[in-house]
Amino acid sequence: MEVPIQWYLLLAAALFAIGAAGALTRRNGISIFLSIELMLNAANLTLVAYSRLLAVRTGQLVVFFVLAVAAAEAAVGLALFIAVFRQRHTIDVNRINLMRW
């Protein structure tokens, strides 16, 4: 039997909500990162689901781009956190308040 589109969307929404909550509440930089990845993948799931429902391949194509960008972003982000860690010996974002007045 076909899985109804609503199920996909509910799962994606749940994933996105978990990711957003995590990104806003976690203090560890890496955890924020993981949460952002969750949100990205929620979006990916939505794209794939609609792509299948509407029988258009574009959505699946876009997902590949998103994955590539996510990988690049992860690399840059990790590099940044390593650099910050070397300077300040922490990646607790509450304590990395360089831009504060």
Partner: peptide, 17 residues
């Protein structure tokens, strides 16, 4: 307005959200 600029990344993320 400077009180809104906390320097805390999570606050900025919240504004963004």
């Amino acid at each position: 307005s400077r009180f809104s600029i906390t320097g805390n990344v999570r606050n900025y993320a919240l504004y963004f959200f």
